[in-house]
Amino acid sequence: MNTRMWRNRKLHAGARRRNRETALSSLRRNWVLHLMVWPAVILFFIFSYLPMAGIVMAFQNFKPGLGFLNSPWVGLDQFRFLFGYDNFLKVLRNTLVFSLSKYVLNILIPFGFAILLNEVRNRRYKRTVQTIVYLPYFLSWVTLAGILLDMLSTQGLVNTVMARLGMERIMFLGDGFWFRLTVIFSDVWKSFGFNTILYLAALTTVSPDLYESAEIDGANRFRQTLHITIPSLVPITVVVATLALGGLLNANFDQVFNLYNPMVYEKADIIDTFVYRIGLLSGKYSLGAAVGLFKSFIGLILITISYRLAYRFTNYRIF
């Protein structure tokens, strides 16, 4: 953290020096910077903000034939309908079980894997492994679910091996506990290779000088990893972790939908699959919109808290 703190201190000194300048003179001097942001701002306005008018749907009983203008207004009925379900809390809990486990593992495992992969000295071997672990990212959940259903069936590959080793056969996808493990780990397996790329890119910015001087100081590789490699990955990790909070209530519809069955509804039903069955299948778009809005608000709150905490404790602005 040494370099970073030093840099931060310097940054603040610079900021103080410019303190006297008015906002206006800064604008005059830095208008080019504004010009550089505006293309993005305009695109966001057109393609993200204009369609946001559709959020009104959450407060309507939207009918495609009537459109936004003529669909009846129902106020908060959609939310009452949703939160009024006996099952809603259970579904919310299931969602959090999946999404929190995936959240933590999808950060830790690519992080650790990137560090280990970085230690592989043969460049060709390293690149080959890197390419192979990135393959599963390109499988759709429909395909992957088909393979998993096959492999994890009671007569499937995994159970056959387990039976040979004298273990009990397990109905992985028909038992709530095993189902959850399957969902969490298959998700991590599918995406860790792809997520690793970001950390590998971050590692390239670490100056070899730091390792050299540590070597001279007599630090072994483990200590170098602990004091140089890991700290240099922390900023990007914090950024990724914060941004991922925005989608915390998205526990991956495609995955659960393709894997689950009536046996495990109780432990497997997430908000999105639940809403799909009670709402979207019967054409209740407004319910879907209300759920989306609810999830967005939670995401906004989480991101804001995380942003504040990171700033308070590390004096680092994530964005």
């Binding site: 369609p51 946001m52 964005f319």
Partner: peptide, 15 residues
């Protein structure tokens, strides 16, 4: 302004 677009969306129909 940008973070907001990551979270909120009007959905398919208005787009």
């Amino acid at each position: 302004f940008m973070i907001f677009t990551m979270l909120f969306s009007g959905g398919l129909i208005p787009s």
